[in-house]
Write a protein that binds this DNA or RNA. Structure first.
Lengths: 123, 123
DNA sequence: ACGGGTACTTACCAAAAGGTGCATACTTGT
DNA sequence: ACAAGTATGCACCTTTTGGTAAGTACCCGT
């Protein structure tokens, strides 16, 4: 740290910019599920199968810091908080829809492509 | 390794499936640039700024193994190889277009969202 | 009064991801 | 003859990422 590296590195292109927001193992999934409407922390955790508390919270904080989601704390006694997309996040989710559909329409092909590769790896 | 864990874990949803293919720091970018037409290794490396040889090749191999790109080796003397999208890859790239556009249309907002966050982090 | 659910937080650790630098084998340009 | 470019491969090491397990403060149902 001899110098301040505050520069976040310029974007190569639009896609690169988008990736800076959605990169993170579970972020796209979180966004996808929030696209279906506001959700409480627990609901989200059940939806995004396999995510740990640590990751879920960390990603939620980052998405909030980036202005794509909005956190609402009801300050109730058994904690109650929910998360929803901001308009910015909403537009992002819309941009992700084709990728979701691509996955839906090619699930079989993807599954076998991944399986085929494993055989090669499993030397 | 007491048991074969050959099961690649079921997809949570279509998006999850898609992510299994495009996950990797540079993969979306590689695909994006290949969307503009076949490219030689060197060209790609110049396009995808910042990628190391190791990563570029590794990602290219995976994408090829997954059937999204096709490698052509001309067996020429100073090595000449090029990469292009397969029809499968082509459809994937089309599904990514909206995300590219989203990034293009929101570059400013994204840049400031990222910058704003850094200030918070820099405690 | 105890177990379970709520939404987190923190510390510690393992694994994956990625970068650097060197090597290859042959050619073209200077 | 020597440096540079071509498309990789490999060993080594650092960084980043992610998981586990524990704890917190408070409530409700039994």
């Amino acid at each position: 740290m001899t110098e301040e590296t505050s520069e976040p590195a310029p974007f190569i292109c639009g896609l690169d910019a988008t990736l800076r927001i959605v990169s993170g193992k579970w972020k796209p999934l979180i966004l996808f599920f929030l696209g279906k409407g506001p959700k409480r922390y627990g609901e989200l955790k059940r939806d995004v199968r396999g995510v740990s508390d640590k990751m879920l919270i960390q990603h939620l904080k980052e998405l909030e810091a980036h202005g794509v989601i909005v956190r609402t704390d009801y300050h109730e006694i058994p904690p109650r908080v929910d998360y929803m997309l901001s308009p910015f996040g909403q537009s992002l989710v819309e941009a992700m829809v084709p990728m979701c559909r691509w996955g839906e329409n090619n699930t079989e092909a993807i599954a076998s492509a991944l399986k085929a590769q494993m055989k090669g790896d499993a030397r």
